[in-house]
């Protein structure tokens, strides 16, 4: 997914769980329904917890790619 398709990117580098998901929960409302929000997180728990958050909150998990510096980036489409 190109940078242009991501409406908002959250920098959660260096944060430990559950902080990346807390940021995701707080800021998902800042993008419109249908838009994609990205979470850049170095904590390995985010790889499981971002998709789990999507399932529990009825949002769509798009997948994982990498940020410009190579950090894992998790993509979420706001669906409600």
């Amino acid at each position: 997914m190109s940078a242009a398709d991501v409406a908002l990117e959250l920098d959660c580098r260096g944060m430990l769980c559950p902080l990346p998901v807390i940021h995701l929960g707080r800021r998902v409302g800042e993008v419109a329904v249908g838009e994609v929000l990205a979470v850049v997180a170095t904590d390995v728990a985010a790889r499981t917890d971002v998709p789990a958050w999507c399932r529990m909150r009825g949002q769509e998990y798009v997948g994982e790619d990498t940020a410009t510096d190579g950090s894992p980036r998790y993509l979420v489409r706001r669906s409600s």
């Binding site: 769980c17 728990a45 499981t48 789990a52 958050w53």
Partner: peptide
């Protein structure tokens, strides 16, 4: 275990 199941690992 939780990661393999794909369930929330925090909390």
């Amino acid at each position: 275990v939780l990661a393999a199941m794909g369930v929330l690992t925090h909390g």
